[in-house]
Each structure stands twice: as structure tokens, then as C-alpha cells.
Design a protein around this nucleic acid. Structure first.
Length: 570
RNA sequence: GCGCCUGUAGCUCAGCUGGAUAGAGCGGCAGACUACGAAUCUGUAGGCCAGGGGUUCGAAUCCCUUCAGGCGCGCCA
């Protein structure tokens, strides 16, 4: 159940990528440091991608060692270079600036790595950072009281992409949606529908002050009338509350699931708040905290001493009137998450809830879990512009742009891609006119076009009777001189994918994938314009088709993480 | 008042666990289809990284401060 992504090739899952450019370099540098009697762990060595003219990879290692070794950075660099130069994976190793060491890999090595990419495909691209650790991502979790809006869409895109990313990175991932079906909000929903229903039957009642006012409320009231006629006419709300609440929220939940499905986002588990009560978990949560000594009573209320764990103030769990606060079932919920055995729990929240983080974190720590095992990713607001003018959104008046509308306007792929080209915690503006009008120059099409174009090349190759059909079979070796400098640029970019991938997984930042894909697509389009893939020279053609195939594999992998189609044709 | 997020090219944003001459897309300007898809490509202009101070070999990145925008600070949810 946990592995329903269909994306993970379970047979290849176990293989670990041992020989990317970066790992190679790391190992070599670690040995070099040992020779200098500097105890540096391979993983701790900083490796970066420099500007192209400097080389493929570089390290400021020597500058960092200057102080502990009490030597000049360049002198240290010299020593490192001496030991490293003998290695034949490098074409060039040199020192630049204040002490950077730049590495340029030898072409035969690059070619061999690319062939490995072609053979191993996804297994070559991913890095096992999770090592089977269990991680839960809870996201969207919208109240089932209205349609999903853009903020939810952003959370959905992020959560789904992150789940794909982490699953590929060797975590066991569960995607969960928390259903707020027990609180005041669903009651208000039921009451709103009730009021509209009575209106329809000519028995107007005052509309609730904070009620939901969207047209969908009236639609729900109509649906009640259609299925139950006037059997609830004139009855007091308290007598029919359960019916109206359940009728309304279950329909909203269905609609919400449909929206998410159409957006391409699927959840593994749906946790109901009511079930937490049914299973007595809310009470157990309080008891657990009590046992651990973090509960006190004050002025007739039950408090959690969250200040012991970094919160600003202590928090009430049971009010004077005996009701729970919103926080209390949430503690039970997070307690349950950990009882299910997750090593890490990620919540994706709207940024307006950021003030809630310290108390939730405190509760989790109080329950005995390490602080680092809980992580909240904040998704900032999405504001919508139409031709440069802000579109006013008021949830109260039921006036807001829904995810559904945006999906219908600009398509799920574009919507997801736009959401994922920004860090989640930066505010995002989408101008719907721009997104529509420029659809032909939209970044998502740019990347997809590269993929479709490669597919088209293979079609052409088949027609032309080139030595390749779908894609040439992968040879054991290729003469490194068959590739030109522009092709080596592309190959290097491909080989940097695993490094980018690991960074994205470690930081939980899928947007890095988006940026990488745009860069790769750009590089490919440029290459395509400069050279013909299918030529009279059979050897060159084969070798170029192999490169195209490698680009295609990487594009597909990246797009799949983002949850965006990799179309054969456009 | 306190806390969190943000401030980088005309616009939208990357880069932020300190590294080399700060990047991309869009928009602007000038160009490229008799060859695998022009949803593409080439060239060009555009910056006191909000301001100020500090830390050090080195700061867009870390610290302090000012300013501007957003969001929070309930025995609400």
C-alpha cells in the first residue's frame, strides 16, 4: 500500500548509484585528504558545479583546509592536485583563483558513464538517500466545505512531486490527506446548506453569520431537495444537523477527490478526524502527555506545557467548558502518524498557519520524538492577476478562483509546472492571461517539446532506414572522438542529474528538478539546431541517437517526478 | 508591540548549509525555416542583489539595524 506509485521499478530499486562524476570525485578527494593527514569525510567535502569554462566540477576544499593545516590554500591545492592528477578519469585538474581545484573529466570516462546511464536508466539517475526510511507527507487536507483553491493546488503539486522525488530517492513514502470532518467548519457547512434548503422551500431562516455563501451551497440544497423532497422542511437545525452535515461534506469530499484526481494527484490514505475520536485517540493523546508529565490544570482548563519545548506560551487542550481546542485532535493525529512507524513526518501547510508550527513541534517532542523528525513545508499564497490586475478573492463571499478553473483554463501540466518553478515558501503570482496567452512559450511546453522532438527524431530515423529504430541498442563502448564539444556539454549535463537529484531530495525541494529540466531542454534545443542527428555517416548517426536517447531518459525521469506528462507528440 | 516569510534585470523568479566575472524565462530590440517539428534557435540591451553597519582570505548568502510588502500572534478553526 505504501508503494503505490507505480513509478518505482522494484527490481532495480535496490541498486545504488556508485559511480557518478560526483561520487567518483568525492572518493578521490577523500583519499587525497588522507594523504595530507587531514581527516575529512567524503560526504563532507563540498563539491560544486562551476561555470563551464572552469571545468565539470570544482571544490573549494583547499581553502577550507587552510586554517586547520596552517598552510596557504594554493599550496594545499597543489598537494591535492599532485595525488589526484594520476587518476585517468580526469582530462585536466587545475587550480584557480584563491585555491579552487577544478576538475575536467576525460572524454572516455564521460562516454562510459553515459553508456551506463543508457543501460541502467532510472537506476543510474536516482540516488539512495532514504535507505528505506519511512516518511509520510500530509498535504492539501482542505476542509471539505468548499472547492479547492489555488493554494491547495500549489500544495497538491508540491506534495505529489515531493512524494515522487522521495520515493525515487529510496524512501518509503505515504501520501495522506487529513479530513476535517469533525469540527465547527463542517457543521457550518451543514448549517449553510440547511439555510439555503429552507429558503428553497419558502421557509427562510436567518443565514449563519460566518456561513459559506458560494453558489455550490445552493446546489447542495437543491440536491437535498431532489433526493429528499421537503421532508426536512421547517425542522429545527439541531434535529437534522447530522443529515445536513454528512450530506454536504461527503459530497464536497467527493468533488474534492475528483478535482485532485483530475489534477493528477492521488493519495494513499485518508485520515478522518472523526475516526480519531471513534478510536479514542484524542483522549489517549492527552493521557500520553499526562503520563510524560507535560500536562497541568489551571482555571478549570487542561493545559499542555509547550513552553518546555520552545513554544511561546502554554496551550489549552481542554477548555473550561469541557470541549477540546482545535489543537487537541491534531496532537492525537500526529501521535498516530508516528505510531504508524514513520521516521519522518512532513506536513505541507498554508503559510498562514506558520504560527502553529512551534506548538505542534512541541507536542511531537513532548511525545518523545526527535525534533528533526517533524518538518513543515510552508506554501505561500498564490495571488492571481488578470492582465496585470489583481483578482480579488474573498472566501467569505464565495468569490475565489478555484483550482478547477485554472486547470480548465491552462491545463493541469502547466499549472503544476508553474507551481513547481518556485520555491514553495516564496509568494507566487500567476497572471492567468499571461499563462494562457503565452501558452506556446510556456516553460512546460518548452521542456515537453524537447521530449516530443526526440521522439520525432526516432520516428524519422526509422523512416530513413537509419541503423536505429526506436533507439539503438547500447553498445559496449563508443569511440570518444565521435562526439564533439557541444555533445560533451550535453553529456556532462546529463551526468550531473544524480547530483541535482540528491540535492533536491535532501532539501525536499522539487523545484530544483524543474530548473534542471529547463536547462537541459535548452541545451538540447540548441544542440538540435546546430547539428543534424541523422546523417549519412552511420557511426555518427548511431552515436547521436544514443545521446538523444539519454536525454530522453533524463527528461522522462524529471517530468515524472513533477507529475507532468512527457508527450510523444504535441 | 512581538514572531515568521519575502525584497535579486522592466515583469515573474533561480542562486541563500559563505566561494571565482550574480543567472534563467518572459517582455524590448535585431535576425534565422529548400534538411530530423520555428511550441525552436542566434545576437543584443538590461543590476549599488531594498538601504546602512558588521563578521573574514572571501558575503546576494551569516549577524545587527532601518525601510517596504505578506502572514501570524484566542480557552477560534
Amino acid at each position: 500500500m505504501l508503494l503505490q506509485h507505480g513509478f518505482i521499478d522494484k527490481e532495480k530499486k535496490g541498486s545504488v548509484n556508485e559511480h557518478t562524476m560526483e561520487r567518483h570525485l568525492r572518493t578521490i578527494l577523500q583519499d587525497a585528504c588522507a594523504a595530507l593527514s587531514a581527516d575529512v569525510q567524503g560526504d563532507a567535502i563540498e563539491i560544486q558545479v562551476p561555470k563551464e569554462e572552469f571545468g565539470d566540477l570544482s571544490t573549494p576544499l583547499a581553502m577550507g583546509l587552510a586554517k586547520p593545516l596552517r598552510k596557504a590554500p594554493r599550496a594545499i591545492a597543489e598537494q591535492i592536485v599532485q595525488t589526484v592528477r594520476a587518476n585517468d578519469v580526469f582530462e585536466k585538474v587545475d587550480i584557480a583563483g584563491p585555491g579552487f581545484i577544478n576538475f575536467t573529466f576525460a572524454k572516455p570516462f564521460l562516454v562510459a558513464e553515459m553508456l551506463r546511464l543508457l543501460r541502467e536508466q532510472d537506476a543510474f539517475l536516482r540516488e539512495d538517500v532514504g535507505q528505506g526510511r519511512k516518511i509520510q507527507i500530509e498535504f492539501v487536507s482542505a476542509n471539505p466545505t468548499g472547492p479547492l483553491h489555488l493554494g491547495h493546488g500549489r500544495g497538491a503539486a508540491l506534495g505529489a512531486a515531493l512524494a515522487n522525488l522521495l520515493a525515487e530517492a529510496g524512501f518509503i513514502v505515504e501520501k495522506e490527506f487529513y479530513i476535517n470532518d469533525a469540527g465547527r467548519q463542517v457543521r457550518l457547512l451543514g448549517l449553510s446548506v440547511y439555510a439555503r434548503y429552507q429558503d428553497l422551500l419558502g421557509r427562510p431562516v436567518p443565514f449563519p453569520e460566518d456561513g459559506y455563501r458560494g453558489d455550490y451551497i445552493t446546489d447542495l440544497a437543491e440536491a437535498v431537495r431532489a433526493s429528499h423532497g421537503d421532508s426536512y422542511a421547517g425542522k429545527a437545525f439541531d434535529d437534522v444537523a447530522e443529515f445536513f452535515i454528512d450530506f454536504a461534506y461527503l459530497r464536497m469530499l467527493d468533488a474534492l477527490k475528483q478535482d485532485l484526481a483530475d489534477f493528477g494527484v492521488v493519495f494513499d490514505t485518508w485520515q478522518s478526524e472523526r475516526d480519531l475520536y471513534r478510536e479514542n485517540l484524542v483522549e489517549q493523546g492527552i493521557d500520553d502527555l499526562k503520563r510524560r508529565g507535560h500536562i497541568f490544570e489551571h482555571e478549570g482548563a487542561v493545559w499542555f506545557r509547550s513552553t518546555d519545548f520552545g513554544d511561546d506560551k502554554d496551550r489549552v487542550l481542554v477548555k473550561q467548558d469541557g470541549d477540546y481546542t482545535y489543537f487537541t485532535p491534531d496532537i492525537a493525529y500526529h501521535r498516530k502518524k508516528f505510531e504508524k512507524g514513520f521516521d519522518e513526518v512532513i506536513d505541507i501547510w498554508g503559510a498562514d498557519h506558520h504560527g502553529y508550527i512551534p506548538r505542534m513541534s512541541a507536542a511531537i517532542q513532548a511525545l518523545g520524538h526527535p525534533k528533526e523528525s517533524f518538518r513543515v513545508l510552508l506554501v505561500q499564497m498564490v495571488s492571481l492577476l488578470k492582465a496585470g490586475q489583481p483578482v480579488q478573492m474573498s472566501k467569505r463571499a464565495g468569490e475565489f478562483i478555484t483550482l478547477r478553473e485554472i486547470m480548465d483554463e491552462i491545463g493541469p501540466d502547466t499549472t503544476k509546472f508553474l507551481f513547481l518553478t518556485r520555491r514553495s515558501d516564496s509568494q507566487l503570482e500567476i497572471d492567468i492571461e499571461v499563462a494562457k496567452a503565452q501558452s506556446s512559450e510556456n516553460p512546460v511546453f518548452y521542456v515537453q517539446y524537447a521530449h516530443a522532438r526526440i521522439n520525432s527524431i526516432f520516428e524519422k530515423a526509422r523512416e530513413a532506414g537509419a541503423p536505429a529504430g526506436e533507439a539503438p541498442s547500447v553498445p559496449d563502448g563508443i569511440d570518444a572522438s565521435l562526439y564533439n564539444d557541444d555533445e560533451y556539454r550535453l553529456i556532462r549535463k546529463l551526468l550531473l542529474y544524480p547530483m541535482m537529484f540528491r540535492g533536491a531530495a535532501n532539501t525536499r525541494e522539487p523545484h530544483r528538478v524543474t530548473f534542471y529540466l529547463q536547462e537541459l531542454a535548452a541545451m538540447f534545443h540548441q544542440y538540435y539546431h546546430k547539428y543534424r542527428i541523422i546523417t549519412d555517416d552511420a557511426a555518427v548517426t548511431t552515436v547521436r541517437l544514443l545521446l538523444c536517447q539519454a536525454v530522453r531518459i533524463v527528461l522522462r525521469h524529471g517530468l515524472k517526478i513533477l507529475g507532468v506528462q512527457a508527450p510523444e507528440k504535441m
